[in-house]
């Protein structure tokens, strides 16, 4: 059974958003369900700090066994940090997707977009469906 923390927001493309102590800055990664479906992750391609994305723009890719999949920005904003540790240890996305497997920190430019994200219960129905 996939873990779906109740304090996060989610997308239908299986990314999550976690608030940080820095107002307007959120952590983005892929969900436990996503990492399970993908299989062993062997490479994560991430953007550079300072890049800007619109909602649902591709901000990177994740490669698992044989398949490369796009990663979509849940909100519009600017990248303020990327998880460089994933370059040497992409498998941490599998083992700890909500912790050490975080991918980017983004400063949200349009906070109203947060209202379009899914809560844990709604995402759980989507992932289980």
């Amino acid at each position: 059974m996939s873990q779906i923390p109740t304090d996060l927001l989610y997308t239908e493309e299986h990314e999550y958003l976690r608030a940080t102590g820095d107002e307007g800055v959120y952590i983005v990664g892929i969900t436990d369900y996503a990492q399970g479906e993908l299989g062993d992750i062997v490479f994560v391609e991430l953007p550079k700090v300072g890049e800007k994305f619109g909602r649902m723009d591709t901000f990177g890719t994740v490669e698992a066994v044989k398949a490369v999949s796009d990663l979509y920005s849940p909100v519009s904003g600017e990248i303020v940090a990327v998880n460089d540790a994933l370059a040497d240890n992409p498998g941490v996305v599998n083992s700890d997707p909500y912790g050490e497997g975080w991918m980017i920190r983004i400063r949200v430019s349009n906070p109203s977009e947060l209202d379009q994200l899914l809560g844990a219960e709604e995402y759980g129905r989507h992932a289980g469906g």
Binding site: G36, G39, D40, V42, F43, E63, A64, V65, K66, D88, N89, P90, G91, N94
Partner: peptide
């Protein structure tokens, strides 16, 4: 089970046909 990567290195300079999944 979750599909396993058959190389201990994340991505390697190996032939595709060396591994099966």
């Amino acid at each position: 089970q979750r599909p396993r990567a058959l190389h201990t290195a994340a991505l390697s300079s190996h032939p595709c046909f060396d591994t099966t999944a």
